[in-house]
Amino acid sequence: MTGPTGMDPAPLSAAKPRERTASRPGAGRHTAALRVAVLLPLGVFFLLPLLAMLEFSTREAGGRHGLQAWRAIGHTPALTSAIITSLTLAGLTVAAMLLLLVPTVTWVRLRLPGLRRLVEFLCLLPLMIPAIVLVVGIAPVYAWVTYLLGDTPLTLTFVYVVLVLPFSYRVIDAGLGAIDLPTLTEAARGLGASWPTVILRVVVPNIRGALAGASFLAVALVLGEFTLASLLNFDNLQVEINLLGEVDAALAIAVSLAAILFAVALLLAISFIGRHRHRNPR
């Protein structure tokens, strides 16, 4: 997917302007007008709710506007502890996901190619089990988990790893497919490296970009998760926002907007990492 793009731009950008000016003279203008006609209303549809959140969250008594609700974010203990819970969950989920997937996918690619379809199927399976259904089946498992590990929201890590599996697997598998894994590992093994060393010091540095992408996606998913947390009775950020909504709508909306902006920043970071990776090999 990412391979050939680095080579294409020159011929592509050379062909485009010619096509626009040489062929039908009116086509370019029509296209431009049509683009505006599409982008403008959709832009309004997507930006309006975000702007409305900004207005709503800064409303104060007497029709004035101020930052009271935004300042309250730091002074609401339930909220700050929920934010900390969600951030910790994100970190734990990323760590567990990497620990589970990187060795497994590497091993399957090298030693057990026959199991590849099975592992892929299992990793993509969560796409077919809606979270609301998964929660019904996993409730008995969580009775055991809380019995063994205590009643802490951090145990949500176990099920969050399952939720991020399809996205993480695709990215990591594609990352491993883009490097010459057999040669690299044979060279390392030939020089006397143990398997853990091979994975940590040869495989991981070579698929850094893919690992970063998989981790960012997992963070975004965990920070936005509501279904499992709320129905398994754990407080995370989304559950807390939902509770706050019943008491203080302005505060809940302020936190929602902050969460969306944080996710946009995260995704922008991914797109820049992706761009950086394109240029690196050349």
Partner: peptide, 29 residues
């Protein structure tokens, strides 16, 4: 593409509040 990446993933509670702020009973619109 970045914005779409976020909005496609980020349904949930925040999205519900976004629309309550927009066209809820006391929403801006």
């Amino acid at each position: 593409t970045s914005l779409c990446g976020v909005l496609a993933q980020f349904g949930g509670v925040t999205l519900a509040f976004a629309f309550i702020a927009t066209i809820g009973l006391t929403g801006v619109v």
